[in-house]
């Protein structure tokens, strides 16, 4: 099995061994992309993940070596180790890891040529700039800047880059000046190997709102079933009683059953019917006396 490593220099062999240990000791092995993350932020992310997940940076070739040496289905991770990759090890499940990594992302300034992850909006309001060439620079990229009260002000809220569009150099510069940080920067999970399955990010995005809606729906369905099928539970017995009472009252009124509890409803109904007929009669020439309405 030492097929690949026996020619490697010692430091490389140590790296590979460390990766192999990480794989052996964790139920989840992931490959993350670290492209464009400043070193300071990497430290920050590591700190946030401490106790939950470990990040191991290594050259892609060494990652490949390690995967090959471990062998088996984990080798499939190989094809996801591209660019500036790192390994991540954890005992959490891949959905949780994905969520965790999303949560460690922070906002950063956009670099020219990057894609807007969402609509980039410049809000209206005052800026800290004194009047100067900045006004023209902002206006040039379509930001409605103006001078007001000796300060540069954005006249109205404006979307300068739509989601998915490329951010040009001029806009990137303007955004930096305005201190707008549109980019989500953090570890991007490329793939996670967990219990013999490789999970890619598209499988790991959780729509929590959909879950919430489904919980509400399920609870409604249970409530409906309990009431409609008359299966009393402490939560629904009130509604069931209410239904029975409403039905009884309705039947009582519909059938004109003169009982104290509903006689007022019956009177009300008679009164409304009388008014309906009175108005119809009035429309056909019958003069109503004042008391009628």
């Amino acid at each position: 099995m030492a097929l690949y490593t026996h020619h490697l220099p010692k430091w490389k062999k140590d790296e590979v061994d460390e990766i192999k240990r990480g794989i052996g000791e964790h139920s989840l092995v992931g490959v993350v992309d670290m492209y464009g993350i400043p070193a300071s932020q990497v430290q920050h992310i590591r700190r946030n993940l401490r106790g939950t997940a470990r990040v191991k940076m290594a050259r892609n070739t060494l990652i490949e070596h390690a995967l090959n040496e471990v062998g088996g289905s984990v080798v499939a991770l190989r094809e996801h180790a591209e660019g500036q990759s790192a390994m991540i090890f954890t005992n959490e499940n891949p959905f949780k890891l994905f969520k965790l990594l999303e949560q460690t992302k922070t906002k950063m300034a956009a670099k020219p040529g990057e894609i807007a992850p969402e609509d980039i909006v410049v809000p209206k309001g005052p800026t800290s700039f004194k009047p100067g060439p900045i006004v023209g620079e902002l206006q040039q990229v379509g930001i409605p800047a103006a001078i007001e009260g000796g300060k540069v002000k954005i006249r109205e809220t404006k979307t300068v880059v739509k989601k998915g569009e490329v951010i040009s150099k001029k806009i990137a510069d303007a955004l930096v000046k305005l201190d707008i940080k549109p980019m989500d920067v953090g570890l991007v999970l490329q793939a996670a190997y967990y219990k013999n399955t490789v999970f890619t990010p598209d499988l790991l995005v959780i729509d929590e709102e959909a879950y919430y809606r489904n919980i509400v729906l399920a609870a409604q369905q249970a409530f409906n079933l309990s009431v409609n099928a008359v299966i009393p539970t402490p939560l629904t017995i009130g509604a069931i009683i209410g239904k029975a009472v409403r039905e009884a009252r309705t039947v009582g009124v519909e059938a004109s059953i003169y009982e104290k509890d509903i006689i007022d409803l019956i009177i009300g109904r008679a009164q409304r019917e009388m008014l309906g007929v009175a108005l119809a009669a009035e429309a056909h020439g019958f003069e109503l006396d004042e008391a009628t309405l």
Binding site: K243, R246, E247, R249, T250, V251, E254, A255, S256, I257, Y258
Partner: peptide, 17 residues
Amino acid sequence: ALEDVNIDEAISKAAVA
């Protein structure tokens, strides 16, 4: 009072309200 009333129908009216 109930003789001429369709009780099921009357009940179903309760559901509308």
